[in-house]
Design a protein around this nucleic acid. Structure first.
Length: 444
RNA sequence: GCAGCAGUAGCUCAGUUGGUUAGAGCACUAGUUUGUGGAACUAGGGGUCGGUGGUUCGAAUCCACCCUGCUGUACCA
């Protein structure tokens, strides 16, 4: 006799992928409905592009590799590499280039879609997540950049955040460009390292950033990061320049004026905002939450921004001959949900069904009629979906957080008066069928 | 990727200087006069002690490598 060892399929999920439960999904749906409402008011078109694109359509930033899987998920279909999109901006640029002659100029579109990144996940950060993007393509007007900031604020407020819960940080790539010119820094590697260091001011403070601008920095775990190797004089100069409270570049002065016209004030000028590196060409901004976010162990964690964006005037041009300056914003919805779930005062109403218990299978027809009556009145209701003792049925109703059960057995049917048991109080009431809908509405 | 810490039932953990069939609480299942949940009691199921290899008469416990998770750091189009 041989003992067969069957290897069972794994119940674990791939790294960075998660199951999402009802509470999270309902909050997400709530956010999405607010987004759609605001986007319609602002006059954006709804667009959907496929999950997969040809790798070279989204991969011009990818390193040359046999398998282009650094950062993205790819596979070879026939002879072509396909990749799951890692954002919604590259597909937009591709779409605009492909449909340039058809679309209105400027083109305003918004999109909600899942994106995938093959990188290390963190708290509220997965390898598959839902992103919201809104973009203006084909305009250089600062009005567009300004409106994106006003618009995202309106969405967040609709979602239940107050002005003090978040802030739009704003800057311009022109500031750092000017800085490099004045310091005579032309080594691109040095520029890159400098920008990356400056991007970390909110986390590391000036203390840490100055180390990174100079020789380098050792982190809490003892790991050492090499710095940009700027001279101490240059580091001093950068700090002095970036600590200036008011912007000097023309685009920032311009957008601040527009903010004033909009009566929009929930922003901060912050020259340390850097965002993506090769990509942006002008105004850049970031949406930052100001309340504490904890992980599931209760530790306060560095959450960072829930999204941001800015002006990218050259991206569409990469796909063809069309010159289409653009500006856009991306928000990670899962990160927003993760943060929102933690705000204690944030509640989503989940309507759970009334449970009609099966006291006697011979009365199924009566139960079905009762169920129909309640459903027609718009009440969430179900007949207990199995065959068990009443005790099990009660336990089930309790477990799914049903507000009440209906007991409708021989005695009740004779009198035509079902018993309604309120599950939070435990009280039972004998009710005429025509009063049932009203009684239930009092409970739920 | 780099660094630090961690990995024992679904969850939270205990497990003494390596020593019989590896434990608890919660959860789960079944019952405690079968028309009554959230409390109590009784019984039960469930673990190749993250994986592989090694040391040993003997490993959850020691060693090596790998995997996964957390935190920081790097990267993030």
């Amino acid at each position: 006799m041989t003992i067969e060892k069957k290897s069972k399929p794994s119940k674990e999920l791939p790294l960075g992928f998660v199951d999402r439960k009802e509470k999270e999904l309902l909050i997400r749906d709530f956010i999405i409905s607010n987004i759609k409402e605001v986007m319609i008011k602002y006059g954006f078109q709804y667009l959907e592009t496929p999950s997969f694109e040809y790798s070279d359509s989204i991969g011009k930033f990818l390193p040359d590799k046999d398998r282009p899987d650094a950062g993205v998920f790819s596979f070879k279909d026939e002879n072509k590499w396909l990749s799951l999109r890692y954002d919604l901006t590259a597909p937009l640029a591709r779409y605009v280039a492909k449909n340039y002659l058809e679309i209105p100029k400027p083109f305003k579109r918004y999109q909600l879609g899942t994106v995938w990144r093959n990188e290390k996940p963190g708290p509220g950060r997965f390898r598959e997540f839902l992103q919201f993007d809104a973009d203006f393509v084909g305009t250089k007007s600062l009005q567009a950049d300004a409106e994106l900031c006003v618009m995202i604020s309106e969405i967040l407020e609709k979602c239940g955040l107050s002005k003090s819960d978040f802030v739009i940080k704003i800057s311009s790539r022109k500031i750092t460009e000017e800085l490099f010119k004045r310091l005579n820094v032309s080594n691109s590697q040095q520029k890159l390292t400098t920008l990356r260091a400056l991007d970390k001011i909110d986390r590391l403070g000036w203390e840490g950033v100055k180390q990174l601008l100079g020789e380098g920095r050792k982190d809490k775990s003892g790991d050492f990061t090499k710095g940009a190797n700027l001279t101490p004089e240059n580091v001093e100069f950068i700090e002095k320049e970036l600590k200036k409270k008011s912007p000097e570049s023309d685009d920032l002065i311009g957008i601040l004026k527009i903010f004033k016209d909009y009566n929009f004030s929930n922003f901060e000028f912050d020259p340390s905002i850097i965002r993506g590196l090769e990509y942006y060409t002008g105004i850049i901004f970031e949406v930052n939450l100001k309340f504490e976010v904890k992980n599931n162990k209760g530790q306060v964690i560095q959450f960072g921004s829930i999204g941001g964006g800015g002006r990218y005037d050259n991206l569409v041009n990469n796909f063809g001959n069309y010159d289409a300056p653009a500006t856009g914003i991306s928000i990670g919805l899962d990160r927003l949900v993760y943060a929102l779930i933690q705000k204690k005062d944030f509640k989503i109403k989940q309507s759970k069904p009334i449970v009609i218990c099966i006291l006697d299978k011979n009365f199924m027809k009566e139960y079905i009629n009762l169920q129909k009556l309640l459903r027609e009145a718009g009440i969430s209701v179900e007949i207990y979906p199995a065959e068990s003792k009443l005790k099990k049925q009660m336990e089930y109703a309790n477990k799914i957080k049903s507000p009440a059960v209906i007991l409708y057995g021989e005695d009740e049917i004779k009198l035509d008066k079902p018993t309604l048991r309120n599950l939070s109080t435990g009280k039972e009431k004998s009710i005429q069928i025509k009063e049932l809908v009203n009684e239930i509405k009092k409970i739920i």
